[in-house]
Amino acid sequence: MNWTLEVVPVPVTDMDRAKEFYADKIGFKVDLDDEVAPGMRIIQLTPPGSRCSIAMLHGMPTAPGTREMTPGALQGLQLCVTDIEAAREELVARGVVVSPVRHVGASGWEDGKGETWNSFLTFEDPDGNGWVVQEAPSELSAR
């Protein structure tokens, strides 16, 4: 049996502002923006090339056995790209506040690219949800 990660909920305070950020600034594709029942809205977006989406929910009951997340509580969700410098340039051009490219060195985090799998940048959405972008070898990007 396969277990696939398909949707990650992202807690936000303003659905329209978050949709604009993820679609226009980050470049995610809007898959769904629908009021599924009176007062219950779902916006689902997918990063280019990914099978896993993010979902922002308003008015939906929390799933049994789970707790509601506070906007800004999601930290460390990771995206992978094959060219970290190009990804950074694209995000900056779209108006996203992005960290410098960094790698883990002998004394901790150091500026600049590292070796394979060791180049990262970070950014936050308007609610403070924190994302990590990692450069991955291109032969693994299609998995």
Score class of each variant (00 low, 15 high):
Thr82Lys: 02
Ser53Ile: 06
Gly39His: 10
Leu91Gln: 04
Thr70Val: 15
Phe21Tyr: 13
Cys80Arg: 14
Gln75His: 15
Ala23Asp: 03
Leu79Met: 10
Gly108Glu: 01
His103Trp: 00
Val30Pro: 03
Asn118Cys: 10
Trp109Ile: 08
Thr46Leu: 01
Ala136Lys: 07
Pro61Gly: 06
Thr116Gln: 14
Ser119Cys: 03
Glu20His: 09
Pro9Phe: 11
Thr70Ala: 15
Lys113Cys: 11
Val92Thr: 11
Asp33Pro: 02
Thr46Asn: 02
Ser53Gln: 10
Asn2His: 15
Gly114Cys: 03
Arg94Ala: 13
Phe123His: 01
Arg41Glu: 04
Val12Leu: 06
Ala63Trp: 03
Asp34Glu: 10
Ile54Arg: 02
Thr66Arg: 10
Thr122Trp: 05
Asn2Cys: 11
Gly49Cys: 12
Trp3Glu: 12
Val101Asn: 00
Ser99Arg: 03
Val96Trp: 02
Asp83Phe: 02
Ser53Cys: 11
Pro11Ser: 14
Gln75Ser: 15
Gly49Val: 08
Thr82His: 06
Pro61Ile: 00
Leu77Val: 11
Pro137Val: 12
Gly130Lys: 12
Ala136Tyr: 09
Ala37Lys: 13
Gly108Ser: 01
Met56Pro: 01
Ala87Thr: 13
Thr116Tyr: 07
Val96Ala: 00
Ser99Thr: 14
Val101Ala: 03
Ala18Thr: 08
Gly105Ala: 12
Trp131His: 11
Leu91Asp: 00
Gly95Arg: 06
Arg102Thr: 10
Thr116Asp: 14
Pro47Ala: 15
Ala73Gly: 08
Val101His: 04
Thr4Tyr: 07
Pro64Leu: 07
Gly27Gln: 07
Gly112Lys: 09
Thr4Asp: 12
Gly39Glu: 08
Leu77Ser: 08
Gly59Gln: 11
Gly72Asn: 08
Met69Pro: 09
Val30Asp: 03
Asn2Ser: 15
Gln78Cys: 14
Ile42Met: 12
Val132Ser: 05
Ser53Thr: 12
Ser53Asp: 10
Glu135His: 06
Glu90Gln: 13
Val97His: 07
Ala23Tyr: 00
Leu74Cys: 09
Glu20Met: 05
Asn118Pro: 10
Met1Ile: 07
Ile26Trp: 03
Ala63Tyr: 02
Val7His: 06
Ser119Ala: 04
Cys52Ile: 08
Phe123Val: 05
Pro137Arg: 14
Pro47Val: 15
Val98Cys: 01
Pro137Gly: 12
Cys52Arg: 10
Asp125Asn: 04
Thr116Leu: 12
Asn118Arg: 12
Trp131Cys: 07
Leu5Met: 12
Gly76Asn: 03
His103Glu: 00
His103Lys: 06
Ala136Leu: 09
Met40Tyr: 08
His103Pro: 02
Arg94Tyr: 05
Ser99Lys: 07
Pro100Gly: 13
Cys80Ser: 15
Cys80Ala: 14
Gly108Cys: 01
Met69Leu: 14
Leu77Thr: 12
Glu20Asn: 06
Thr70Gln: 15
Gly128Ile: 09
Leu121Thr: 02
Leu74Arg: 07
Val8Thr: 15
Arg88Glu: 07
Thr116Glu: 14
Pro11Ala: 15
Thr122His: 09
Val96Thr: 04
Trp3Leu: 14
His103Met: 00
Trp131Ser: 06
